[in-house]
Structure formats: C-alpha cells, structure tokens
Nucleic acid binder design. Structure first.
Lengths: 266, 266
DNA sequence: TCACAAGTTGCAAAAAATGGAACAATTATG
DNA sequence: CATAATTGTTCCATTTTTTGCAACTTGTGA
C-alpha cells in the first residue's frame, strides 16, 4: 500500500458530513497502525494536502485542494454548458439546481445553484448519493444497458428510504420509464418533501455524461411550474446534445411531464 | 522528495486556467525526470487522485477531489455564515458575489454566487489572485500590521495591471484607508470595467478570516446601488463579527462608502 | 494527582521511489 | 505513406521512504 493510496483513501473520507479527521479517526477508517496514521497526517499536512483547524488536532482538506473543483469543471465544456442551462432554469424558477456526474453507482454534484426562493432545497454538493435512488442518478443510469445496470448494482442496497426502489427489477422498470420519457423524476424519495427532475446528456467525444437537475419542495410547486422547469431543462439539454453530437439523448416528451403526485409509490 | 510532496506540487498546478496536465507538462513544471512524471501520473491515477480526459493522455483532478471543497466549506461555520450573507446580497443586487480566504499573499474564492444580471462578472473560483491587487485581498491584509504586510509582500510583483498599486508604500497607504473605512474597494483594478468591494471578518476561536465580496460592472451601477451593496455586506459581516466575537472587525462607515469613480487612481 | 486516551518517535526490515537510458507509441511532416 | 520528431513507458541497481512494533510523550478528565 503506497502513501499515495492511503492519502487518497483518507481524502475519500471527507464529504459534507465528515469535514475533519483526527489521528484516531484515520487509524480506524483506513485500518492502519496509529503510528502510520500520525505520520500520514503529518506528511499530508507538510505537503499542503491537509491543514489543522485552528491549532486543534483535527484536520481538514488543505486550501490547495479547494481550487481543484474549479479545474475539474473547467476541464469539461460539457459541465460548463450544463451549468449554464441549470443556472438559467434555477434563476427563473428560484429552485435549487445542480449538475452531477456518475461514478460507479454514485452521483456527485459538481456545480450547484442554491436557488432564491425562501423555501428551497439546500445545496447538494459534496455528498455522493446512490445513483438508483435519485432522479439525477437514474437519468444517468438510463443511458446504460440493463445488463450494465445490473452489474453496477450488484452490491447496492435497496429501499434506503421508504420511497426508494426495493429491488433491482423495480429499478430496471423505472429506467425503462426514464428511457421512454427522456428524464428522471423522484417524488419525496431521497428526502421527505422534496421532488426532483433530472435530464442526462453526454459528449461522445470525451465519453463524459452529466445530469441537469432541479430539486424543489413537493407541496408548493404547481403542475404548470413543473412543466416550465422540465421544458427549460429539456430545451437546454437538447441544445447541448446537438452541439456534442450525443445521439443517445432523447428529448423529453412534454406529454409525459411529471405531474404533482404522479408516482408509482403513492 | 516524497511522492506526496510531488503529488501536492502537481495538484497545485491546476486552477481554472490550467485544467489538465500531460507527462511532459509535469516533467517541466515539477522539474523531475519524465520517467518519474509518468509514474507519478500513473500512481495518482491509480489512487483516484487524477483521471484521464476521455482516453487522451491529458489528466485532470480525480472525481474524489471535487467533494473536498464542500468538506472544507463545511468544516468552517465562518465560511458558512459568510456564504449566507453574500448569497443574500448577491440575490438582491444580482451581481456576482463570493467568499474568499487568504493564503500568504494570495486570495482564493471558496464559495461563489454567479449573480443573475445579464451583465455580470464571471465566477472567480479556482484562480488565486495576489492579495494586494484586489478589494477582497486588501480587506484581509488590512487585518495584519504593516510590518506583517511588508514581510508578506517581500517578493510580490507590483503594478500587475495599470491600476494596481505600484509600490509597497502605495499598498500600505491603501490598507490604512481600508482600516479607516472598514472595507476594501477596487475600481477596474484587476479587470477592466469591473469594480469590487470586500469586507473581512474573522473568528478568533479558530484563527480563520474570510472576506465577503461583491463584484460588479463599473459603468452601470449607481451610487445608490453601491451603497445598498455595501450596507448589505456590512450588516451581515457585523452580525458575524458579533457572533464570533471578532474584536478586530470595524463596521464600515456609511459616510465613506465608495462612490462611482471615487478612486485615487483616476 | 492519577489514570487513561490520544498522539509521537526510534529502530531494523520491507517496500517503494529514483534517475539514467533503452524502448514503444503517437503525432507531425515531407 | 514513410520518416522524423515528439511523447510516453519500462528496465535496472541504488537510494530513499515507509512500515509495524513498542516505548515514549502529551493532553484530558475524574
């Protein structure tokens, strides 16, 4: 096990839930002798990969790492284009929007736009979620074949919340629907009271795929507003698909736009 | 030189200008034999610290790194509070806002809010800037003593743009003014046509300091709007200073709010 | 003050990184 | 299309780092 691998494993421990680590934390999480944890932390601190919070023993990611997200976003014109579309829609409707990518069976937000409504869903960056339990995740999974999805979800956990799918077959059924509709939707699935829509689009030249997503409170958003949101995302995504030459993209069908409360889980 | 140090040096090369690196780039930038550059890249790729773009030889930060910014932000209540204030002001005025921190003589944005006006300043995350040439940077530098500033700027470059300060003395004079006013301002200094205001606030418990900043187009923003922006930031910052017990904070003086075109460099 | 947990350091063995040069692959050029 | 030029990878013995254990130090709370 090289230092680099341990360093990477350590960095993976951080997310919006776990924002700092001590020697003991690292000892447990990476399952290494505490001597090594101590030295790893010291080395990473020396390199600027970590920093201590105040003068406590708690470590957080070093400041040099905070610019990296920008480099990642900047390296992808697909993400930039998707961000613009989502920002536009988010500004118009006032709800929180984000662009996310899939890594294995997880989706991570890469850009987010917090929304301006008083009642808005909090930002979702920095907390990878299972792909099969989210609108945005399913919009991305729907671009794979059923066989690939089955392989990906081999050791996934189902029914993580009361409204999330309970079996692989249920997921596959949902994906069939996503492929037919052209978008993913979720109704109070990941978070109670929160609905979401996601549309995926890719760039065949780089192999990248992103999902454009808007999340909003279930109760207060009318059907008309839902349609407006979806139309906005769909138009923007279609535009991107045209530019990148994404042939797998299917323009969402307005006739199937999700209505308030439309869900197979009610 | 440990791998970790090289890895960190490599990651430092990324910013919003330089979003991907090849073996040759790394060889030159880190001044190491290309054999090592090749192996470093491979090791970092293996650890997930980097990934290739498509199947090219170009590398960008790995996806595991994009969540780290969120962990950093989450580890600091100061950043969270500052973000809320800036978001509020940015939403109200429609201009781009961000929260930044100082590292040595550089400032990096940690959260940004792109603004909703048609004519807005683009996001500023991921591109560290010299502290002494920006409103936000000077608002942070002003919290140091002149001696500390002199030490920090020992090998800084001056006059990086026509309107940026030309000597250390000029910087010190500007900082004196910042300390008197309670805020930093810049007029078409870093970018032509762009003005900015920044207010710094700290948390004595953790030693952290952040700056709340709004950037806007010089031409179209009236005096009244400038005052509104500054009042918004100032009220929010004062609130934060009260909560953290920051005694070094000085509430900006409305009488000295910057007027359109008010600048010693005109 | 003591006990206990958390973190750090010394040491020899084991593993990984280094740099030079040969080799392979890719890209540009006539 | 062949050749040159550029870019990236692999081989090797040597040097350096990392590892795991245990002893040690520091800090915390009863």
């Amino acid at each position: 096990m090289t230092v680099l691998e341990n360093a990477a494993r350590l960095l993976k421990c951080f997310n919006s839930e776990c924002t700092d680590l001590t020697v003991t934390d690292v000892t447990e999480r990476l399952d290494i002798p505490k001597a090594n944890a101590s030295r790893l932390l010291k080395a990473m601190r020396g390199a600027g990969l970590l920093e201590t919070i105040g003068d406590s023993k708690r470590h957080r990611p070093g400041r040099l790492l905070i610019d990296l997200g920008a480099a990642f976003r900047g390296s992808s014109t697909l993400i930039a284009m998707a961000g613009e579309v989502v920002k536009e829609v988010s500004d118009t409707c006032g709800h929180t929007g984000f662009v996310s990518i899939r890594v294995g069976n997880e989706v991570s937000g890469v850009v987010d736009f917090p929304g301006s409504n008083a009642l808005r869903v909090a930002g979702t960056i920095g907390r990878p979620l299972p792909a099969h339990t989210t609108a945005t995740g399913r919009s991305l999974l729907a671009r794979l074949s059923d066989a690939e999805v089955v392989a990906l979800l081999r050791d996934a956990t189902f029914k993580v919340t009361p409204r999330s799918p309970g079996t692989i077959d249920e997921v596959l059924a949902m994906l069939t629907e996503v492929r037919a509709c052209g978008f993913g939707a979720s109704f109070q699935e990941t978070t109670l009271g929160v609905d979401a829509v996601g549309i995926a689009v890719g760039d065949p030249k780089t192999g990248e795929e992103v999902s454009l997503c808007i999340v909003f409170p279930s109760q207060i958003v009318s059907d008309a507003e839902r349609q407006a949101i979806l139309t906005g995302l769909a138009d923007g995504a279609a535009d991107i698909a045209f530019k990148t030459g994404d042939t797998r993209f299917k323009k969402p069908d307005p006739a199937r736009f999700p209505l308030k409360g439309l869900t197979s889980h009610d």
